[in-house]
């Protein structure tokens, strides 16, 4: 996998590069801001771009805007946005396009899961940070919470689905058999009235759409 990195903090940038290299990937570009990212992407044609949400010059949402622009210019490119803290609005908007990942920076320390998520995004899948998912799934105050019908296990499965994991990934994470996971997924989709689909990305979209719609309701 060919990776381009945009991160203003030198230490973190170098750490990330080493992380990908240690994982057997090739870092083709390493930039301190988002300004030269489009040129680097056009030149090096990476499979994945990892970038920080907050970068110079204003330290607000340069990364998010650059990510959007890259995705428009290169729909097949995987883009993984790293953030210091949860910003649900950006996260959902970006992830629902596919080939997008949105993770908190802390996740990089769980090297295995982080690299798996990065690979998933590079391959056109999704990766949504569990904290973002949790903030979407957390029950609202209203009584008719559709998630209230889910069992604890089903809720766990839903969250992992939302993170972008496949059935196999969920089974591995929850230490369950793949068949059990499939049953849970069917049950969750039925309870939330989401049509079943073999495509894990489309499944994520459906779940996210459902969750955000539910969010807006509350």
């Amino acid at each position: 996998m060919r990776v381009a990195i945009a991160e203003d903090q030198v230490l973190l940038r170098e750490g990330l590069a080493r992380l990908f290299e240690d994982g057997g990937h090739e870092v083709v570009a390493s930039l301190p801001d988002a300004e030269h990212l489009p040129a680097a992407v056009a030149g090096h044609r990476p499979d994945l771009v990892v970038l920080d949400v907050r970068m110079p010059p204003t330290f607000t949402d340069e990364g998010a805007r650059a990510a959007k622009q890259l995705k428009e210019e290169h729909p097949e490119l995987g883009v993984l946005v790293l953030s210091q803290h949860v910003e649900t609005a950006h996260a959902v908007e970006l992830v629902s396009q596919g080939g997008f990942g949105y993770l908190l920076k802390n996740r990089v320390l769980d090297v295995g899961a982080f690299l798996a998520a990065a690979e998933r995004v590079a391959a056109g899948g999704s990766a949504l940070d569990p904290q973002v998912v949790a903030s979407l799934v957390s029950p609202g105050s209203a009584g008719d919470d559709p998630l209230a019908a889910l069992s604890g296990r089903e809720r766990e499965v839903l969250e992992l689905m939302a993170e972008g994991l496949t059935n196999a990934g969920i089974a591995k994470r929850l230490v369950l058999s793949e068949r059990t996971v499939e049953a849970h997924v069917r049950s969750v989709l039925m309870k939330l009235s989401i049509p079943e689909s073999g495509d894990s990305h489309r499944r994520v979209l459906a779940v996210l759409a459902h969750l955000t719609a539910a969010q807006i309701q509350y």
Binding site: Q9, L12, R18, L19, Q84, K105, V108, L109
Partner: peptide
């Protein structure tokens, strides 16, 4: 800003160095 961009990032980069 100081905590997120300073201490937190530094801690993460330390974590990355240790992973390395």
């Amino acid at each position: 800003r100081d905590l997120h961009d300073g201490a937190q990032q530094r801690l993460i980069s330390i974590g990355l160095a240790l992973r390395h």
